[in-house]
Design a protein around this nucleic acid. Structure first.
Lengths: 212, 212
DNA sequence: TCTTTTATAACGAAAACGGGGGAGATGTAA
DNA sequence: TTACATCTCCCCCGTTTTCGTTATAAAAGA
């Protein structure tokens, strides 16, 4: 039995979902709300597994609400449903922690499938949405990696990592249980391998090239 | 009629797909190949709408192949199918231009649905894969990341930028046409605003939070 | 108007850093 | 075996950075 909470400002739609869930095998609706003003209390009072979240709502919108729910109830799977097919929304919804994103043009069976899907660890998306997600993924996250290793040894990588964390030579020495001079020696070697001449340069290069 | 090319090294699977496609309404298989050695010529000789691509193949792997196909035939939709449920593969496949990613555990009907889906502009993904994609999306691509501005002034931002580029105080002073002591002063202010106590820490924080 | 912020600049001292050399103890590869 | 690389440590030396404090003029805000 999947417990679902509904946040949807349109009365007709909200009651349609409520009816659909309560008359379908394996689903139960634990709450249907018109806005998110008392959302956290509502969910706390009526626990659920999945939240069906509208984006466009008076007061707090569905994306902000998603973020909040995820902060307080990280285990709840949130299924966004909207009429908006826009990158900005998709992008923000995903980053807010939504696990699925479907359009309101979805059929009732599609809704139930999506809820089942999201609850079993999937991420249902209207086909076109999924394509947009991949496009966003590709364009925003291009090169994957230059993957150059610069031939740093294991110890040197540890030292570089600590350096990137802002540690001083002294602190790095303490952290690795070796002497100050050993760290100096390692760092000197790191600099020559990375072709840099200062800690700031090394950190910059390391972070830009994802060496750490 | 959706024209499909198959790249799959397993003979049994390859022939199964071939049979499935040629006996299903609305599909036709224009070629079934065991490797990608002559892939571009194969596709040029037998045009298709969708490529069903295996990842693990002798010689060129499916991800490299995907990249190549997309370069030469950008309109072809590529559906990756594999036994591997690994972030690294998913990530690279998407970046290579794949439009769908399904596991080989998918049913025959699932395959046909996926092919139809990918051809009509969707991005079919095995439920768990979709979830992984969203996770990767979220972790690799923090939302625009305004986060905190730390109230750095314009001049301080310039100084920080130069610091991140690995410049020394002296070089920064020269670059901004001010005195060495002025830079000392700015950097001191930057550190206190950023709550750091060294250049490496400042650079690290600046890059991580995309302040520059 | 008065106050605050910003950018500029200076001095001094302690701490940290960067570069140079050398050297012994490993373990592995040729 | 002889190399080679790695990790460890030490010394010296000069430079750079960090952290104080102080101060002035300009700009912006109340």
């Amino acid at each position: 039995m999947i417990r679902v909470s509904i946040f949807e400002d349109n009365k007709h739609l909200r009651e349609t979902f409520l009816f659909l869930l309560n008359t379908s095998e394996g689903f139960t609706c634990t709450g249907a709300y018109a806005d998110c003003s008392t959302m956290l209390e509502d969910i706390a009072a009526n626990p659920c597994d999945v939240v069906l979240m509208d984006i466009e709502m008076p007061g707090m919108n569905g994306i902000e609400a998603t973020k909040l729910v995820k902060e307080h109830f990280p285990k709840i799977n949130i299924l966004i449903q909207t009429v908006f097919f826009e990158d900005e929304y998709i992008f923000n919804a995903i980053c807010a922690g939504a696990s699925g994103y479907i359009l309101k043009s979805t059929t009732p069976e599609g809704y139930l499938d999506a809820i089942k899907n999201v609850q079993s660890g999937g991420s249902p998306m209207t086909p076109g949405i999924a394509r947009r997600v991949l496009e966003l993924f590709k364009t925003n996250l291009q090169p994957a990696k230059p993957a150059r290793v610069y031939d740093l040894t294991a110890q040197e990588k540890k030292v570089l990592k600590l350096l990137v964390e802002g540690k001083s030579y002294k602190m790095i020495a303490a952290a690795l249980y070796v002497s100050f001079d050993t760290i100096k020696s390692h760092i000197s070697n790191i600099y020559s391998k990375l072709h840099v001449h200062s800690g700031t340069e090394a950190v910059s290069l390391a972070l830009r090239n994802k060496l750490v």
